[in-house]
Design a protein around this nucleic acid. Structure first.
Length: 473
RNA sequence: GGCCCCAUCGUCUAGAGGCCUAGGACACCACCCUCUCAAGGUGGAGGCACGGGUUCGAAUCCCGUUGGGGCUACCA
């Protein structure tokens, strides 16, 4: 390609399972590159294998990309709808002698090559002059000598000796084209200039180059093979064994901008030790040539850190809006009637400062809305049963709060003075009250929470705790 | 097995021959702040896989070893 050409990249996932973070990273890099070069980003669904494709997965890809803010300029195209193009390319290749029919079954090929030093197809049908047709696959005649070079922007030139590449199948015996052919035909047809994809595709790239050259229809694209994302055991992220679905992270309460930022940093980094980047900064600073070559571990802890950063950067109002899916609807721990938006708003900033994912919100405010009131037993044991002064403090707090102004400072001062009478610091005094009213030793600041609960409920819960401590203690 | 890729703290990375006494971030530890828990602040521990070269000088270049990974389907 030349510099004057418009940049055209594509993201081409196969709809064979949940859309995962590795795919999202690949899509993001393609998208950033296209935006930076003012080119086009094309979405193409690689569903040449009908038996392995499912329309529902395509919907998942589309919604995940949309959620991440990765928009496409053309598509989504489906390979399954572009069959005529592949057939025409096959005709051309056949015409030029690049293909030959083969009727060897997989078993026969394996039996024949089992003892040979070089595995793979042995070229048995190369010169048998079989007539193409149903029941026979079409293989690409790979040159016996020479080198096929892949020009890769992140790895440099990668060379493959042609003798190590087998005569691979391009059309199945049932007439269906294979991915290796479809991808090349589509990339040529869509005038793709840069192929940015995961490293796992690198070994098949020389085959694509060979087909591309045999078709002789367009200059070769530039490649960029991104390092794979791995799990803690340093194996390629797998849909089967690892939690990788973008949708899962969405459900857990990760912000798309945080996931995007984290993903951007898995394999590339900007200068000056910066890590939090706006989308504009990513677009202007991203460089394919600076992408790392080694596999990167997808670290959820680090992702959570970024998510916390992004959550804390939200304005009060934005935080409330982002919270909605987690505080109402079918996943809420309470009914719509039990929920009170005003009360939630009053405590929201305190929640916002404490969480790393939006999914943690319910845990912080369930003491306010969920019925029946849930008591954490270990907390009760620790702060009430094992504290001989707990019941005394609860009783005194109850009396004081019964007639107090229900306001943060007032409630705090009252508890401080109760503590002083028993020579206790507030940290210790507040524990039984917190557990009695909020159900746990940990949680939101106590006095703000008491105000939200209201006098009546606070007194009721303290009474309940005293009763419970006495009857079971 | 064959082909290919890779190799800086546990993790993500900065580093393109002298700026490195190897920088930042997550996680971890300590302290500060503090009504609990977080958040925030300060500090700490922790790394160039190994061996040869090249060079006045190597984390940086070359070769080898070792280790990891990917691919090896009439899947994508």
């Amino acid at each position: 390609m030349t510099d004057s050409q418009q940049v055209r990249v594509r993201f081409a996932p196969s709809p064979t399972g949940y859309f995962h973070v590795g795919g999202a990273r690949t899509a993001l890099y393609n998208w950033l590159f296209a935006r930076q070069r003012e080119g086009k980003f094309i979405l193409r669904i690689e569903d040449t294998d009908r038996e392995r494709s499912d329309e529902s997965w395509t919907g998942g890809i589309v919604s995940a990309l949309t959620w991440l803010g990765i928009t496409w300029d053309e598509g989504p195209f489906h390979q399954s709808e572009r069959r005529p193009l592949y057939d025409a390319a096959v005709a051309t290749l056949l015409d030029r002698g690049h293909l030959y029919a083969c009727d060897c079954t997989r078993e026969i090929v394996e039996a024949r090559t089992k003892d040979r030093a070089t595995p793979g197809y042995d070229g048995f049908c190369r010169d048998r002059g079989l007539e193409p047709g149903i029941g026979k696959a079409l293989r690409f005649r790979v040159p016996d000598t020479g080198i096929t070079t892949v020009h890769d922007l992140v790895r440099g030139d990668v060379e493959f000796a042609n003798e190590t590449i087998e005569d691979f199948i391009i059309v199945k015996s049932n007439g269906d084209p294979l991915y290796v052919l479809a991808v090349v035909v589509d990339d040529i047809d869509m005038k793709i200039t840069h192929i940015i994809r995961a490293e796992e595709h690198l070994p098949t790239t020389p085959k694509a180059v060979l087909i591309w050259q045999a078709l002789d229809a367009a200059p070769l694209p530039l490649f960029a093979h991104l390092p794979v994302l791995v799990n803690e055991k340093r194996q390629k992220l797998s849909k089967r064994r690892d939690r990788v679905a973008v949708e899962d992270y969405r459900q857990l309460g990760y912000l798309p901008e945080a996931l995007r930022n984290y993903l951007c940093l898995l394999g590339w980094s900007p200068t000056e030790d910066r890590e939090v980047l706006t989308i504009e900064e990513m677009i202007s600073e991203f460089r394919l040539e600076e992408v790392n070559r080694s596999p990167a571990f997808f670290d959820e802890k680090r992702l959570a850190h970024f998510n916390g950063l992004y959550i804390r950067a939200l304005s009060d109002e934005e935080f409330i809006e982002r919270s909605r899916p987690f505080i109402s609807g079918e996943h809420a721990l309470w009914t719509e009637r039990q929920f009170d938006e005003g009360l939630f708003r009053s405590l929201a900033p305190l929640v916002q400062a404490r969480i790393a994912t939006l999914g943690e919100i319910p845990g912080y405010v369930k003491f306010l809305f969920a019925a029946p009131f849930e008591m954490d037993e270990p907390s009760f044991e620790k702060a009430v049963r094992r504290d001989e002064l707990a019941v005394t403090i609860l009783s005194e707090a109850r009396s004081a709060y019964a007639k107090a102004e229900f306001e943060v400072e007032e409630l705090k001062e009252l508890l401080i003075s109760i503590g002083e009478q028993h020579d206790r610091k507030l940290a210790k005094t507040q524990a039984p009250v917190r557990v009695a009213t909020m159900g746990s030793t940990v949680g939101l600041p106590l006095f703000e929470s008491l105000v939200a609960l209201g006098r009546e409920e606070v007194l009721r819960r303290i009474d309940g705790a005293i009763l419970r401590a006495n009857e079971e203690g």
